[in-house]
Amino acid sequence: MPDFLLDPDVVFLNHGSFGACPRQVFDEYQRWQRELERQPVRFLQRELPGLLADARLQVAHYLGARPTEIVFVPNPTFAANEIARSLPMGPGDEVLMTDHEYGACRFAFQFAAQQKGFRVVEQAIPLPVESNEAIVDTFWQGVTEHTKLIFISQITSPTALTLPVAQICQRAKEAGILTMVDGAHAPGQIDVHLGDLGADFYTATCHKWLCAPKGSGIFYVREDRQSLVEPLVVGWGWGPNKTFHRENEFLEHHEWLGTYDPAAYLAVPAAIAWQKKTMTDEVRHRSQDLARAAVAMAAEIEGIERVHPDSFFRQMGLIDVTAKYVDADMLKSRLYDEYRIEAPVVRWKDRIFVRVSTHAYTRQDHIETLVRALQEI
């Protein structure tokens, strides 16, 4: 399988969970690890500040933000916890999200709500959706005078739905409501320009669709909102004897949280370079076509239904198998054990979906294998 290290004996249709790292990017990741081990003190104390600054600059350029607005974090769950615990919210305040949000991030806000007394409101977005305008109007029904923060995914994890977050952020700005966008599935799958998006806070993984090493993510906080954010982990960057001596407190608080392996962060620019060279419009459109083919072909099986019109999903498609009364765990196990297909089977409310993720390495025969397996099961 060119470029990727994936097992060629597995039909890998689950890029959306953890991504897959191209060989060139993984080599760069290991190169940074070797550099660290050659002289750890020199690397961590003297070289790392400049290396992180350069990596942030490249990420900021790629995502349309200022370098002082972005820090590296392990994943969006980390960033969601930081916002949930930082913002001055208490009894009478509300955080509004959809009922399509990623479980770990939802739990972060629910946990903080128990500690601080605010309320988490989940506004239902019924499927199938009809239009972006209908999504915005339906979501806005959950807004009240108590809404202090909107937390919403750019592309939802359980339902692979692309949401009109720019419109929601604009409407929230007009209403004086803060916004945080979970872009875990966005960079690398769709174009992202944070300056145009209008969110106050944004987080994303780099190890999913951007194809960077595991454990690399970004946390964006608009410069005029950085005073609202407290560090989730207090380390040397907080006290008077700072490690990196940044003028920007947001960067200082996040760039030295204790000893860690920064290689995944430093390899993100290599992933961006690989994206620009390899994931051309032609390759991305081909991947989208394969996802849409999987949905269309599966829908020809009696009892299996489509969920979204093509315009609402990209390289992740949903196959609704609810009417087949299948057990989700059994289906996932059989797909892998009998057919060597790695694809998530998602429980969402009272429905069961097979989520299909396609990428540059996906082939037509992979899709045919999945459809044949669903027919037989």
Rank of each mutant, 00 (worst) to 15 (best):
K148H: 03
D196W: 12
E145F: 01
K208I: 12
I150E: 05
K214N: 13
R222H: 11
T179S: 08
L197N: 06
T144P: 05
P164A: 11
I150M: 05
T144H: 01
I177K: 12
Q170E: 15
P213Y: 07
G188C: 06
I150S: 02
S153M: 05
K214Q: 14
S157V: 13
L163Y: 07
E174P: 11
D191K: 14
L197S: 01
T159H: 12
D200K: 03
G188M: 00
D182C: 07
V143R: 06
L161I: 13
K173V: 15
H193W: 10
A160R: 08
K173H: 15
P187G: 08
W209A: 07
G183A: 10
G176V: 08
A175C: 13
T203E: 08
T205P: 13
I155A: 04
K208N: 12
P158K: 07
G142T: 00
F219W: 12
F151V: 08
S153F: 06
L210T: 09
G195W: 02
Q167I: 10
A172Q: 04
I218T: 05
C169W: 05
W209K: 09
K148T: 04
G176I: 03
G183K: 05
H207E: 14
E223M: 13
W209Q: 06
W140M: 08
A186H: 04
L161Y: 03
T179P: 01
G198Q: 04
G183R: 02
Y202M: 00
H207R: 10
T179F: 02
F219S: 02
L163G: 02
A160E: 02
Q141S: 08
G176Q: 07
A186V: 09
I168F: 07
P213K: 03
H207C: 14
I218K: 03
P164F: 04
D182K: 00
I177G: 10
S216L: 09
C206I: 00
V221H: 10
T147C: 02
D224T: 13
I168N: 00
I168V: 14
R225W: 05
A172N: 04
G183H: 00
A175R: 15
G198P: 00
A199W: 01
L163M: 14
L178E: 10
D200V: 09
K214I: 14
Q170G: 13
V221T: 14
G195P: 10
L149M: 00
